[in-house]
């Protein structure tokens, strides 16, 4: 916009009575809706449309381009499918372990770092793993655990184990390798948020408690932690969402082995749809996960986010 038009606008508004420039009440009322409309329409296109599409497709047996209506057969088969239940269980086990570890480590580090004079330096160093592409990080750990045998070699070097571990062959070691990959890359996500929360709290409260003779650990547990609890909850919810959708590391590191013990729900849907080309069945699984997501979002997440200021 050129300066000339701005000046014209100003001149015009000065000449006319101010009230003249006000919009009609209806247009004023519609204005905010017009502002959100493009974004909402775009998101509906990429969520509502797929949701409906998946629901319809889940009622069909899809073989290449021929669709046969089979009613709820896919769902019946799905709920009786041990592989589907196993994928839910794996997601829960791997996700909960990773989230718990990340939380404990990030909180410990944040508690030690937030008043450290070098906090900015620590933050940059801790951040680095998060800056690599997840696919690259998966390859780093695939090489370290499996192909390169570095983890086994280091553990043997310090005498913890006698012979190399088979991280792909053992159920718990395979899951552990996914957990460690996630912890390495994403602990900084929580750490950064926790440090910021701890730094932004009211220092006077801590100071007052200290003057009353409280120990450092008491202050942290009884004052700082409860103060930042809402932010901790938001951070855990966001991280939790990303963990349960875990796909890249499974795809690259384990491929679901051994015996499907590391197959997450995302990988189950991917494998069913794009490896076995059973799209109707994969859609049924998608719909089930989608419904679960909506319920979880409504009950757990909604309370943490408010649109406006009230």
């Amino acid at each position: 916009m050129s300066i000339a038009t701005t000046n014209n606008g100003r001149a015009a508004s000065a000449a006319r009575p101010r009230i003249y420039r006000r919009r009609s009440p209806l247009r004023r009322k519609l204005f905010p809706y017009l502002l959100v409309l493009p974004a909402v329409a775009y998101l509906l296109g990429i969520t509502l449309y797929p949701g409906i599409y998946a629901m319809v497709q889940s009622l069909y047996r899809v073989k290449f381009n021929s669709w046969t209506f089979i009613g709820l057969d896919n769902y019946e088969k799905l709920f009786a499918d041990p592989e589907f239940w196993a994928s839910l269980w794996n997601t829960l086990v791997i996700g909960a372990s990773a989230l718990a570890l990340e939380f404990v480590i990030a909180m410990t580090l944040a508690a030690f770092a937030y008043r450290d004079p070098w906090v900015r330096g620590w933050r940059i160093i801790f951040l680095l793993p998060m800056l690599f592409m997840p696919s690259a990080v998966s390859f780093i750990w695939k090489l370290a655990f499996n192909d390169g045998g570095v983890v086994s070699d280091l553990l043997m070097g310090i005498g913890v184990i006698g012979s190399p571990l088979d991280f792909l062959g053992n159920v718990w070691l395979a899951r552990l390798s996914l957990v460690i990959t996630d912890v390495w890359q994403w602990t900084p996500f929580l750490f950064i948020i926790f440090v910021a929360a701890l730094q932004s709290q009211d220092m006077e409260i801590e100071e007052a408690a200290r003057l009353d003779g409280a120990r450092w650990s008491q202050i942290f547990w009884n004052i700082s932690l409860p103060l930042i609890a809402p932010i901790v909850a938001v951070a855990l919810v966001l991280r939790g969402i990303d963990i349960v959708t875990m796909f890249t590391s499974v795809f690259i590191i384990t491929g679901g082995t051994p015996g499907g013990a590391t197959e997450t729900v995302s990988y189950f849907i991917y494998r069913t749809g794009f490896k076995r080309f059973d799209f109707g069945y994969a859609s049924a699984a998608s719909v089930v996960v989608l419904v679960a997501t909506v319920i979880l979002a409504q009950t757990f997440v909604k309370r943490f986010f408010k649109s406006g200021r009230d």
Partner: peptide, 17 residues
């Protein structure tokens, strides 16, 4: 909240459609 909730959707869930 609707806008926010699209962040929670697992990519794999909408991948097929």
């Amino acid at each position: 909240f609707y806008i926010l909730s699209t962040r929670m959707m697992a990519p794999a869930v909408v991948a097929i459609p």
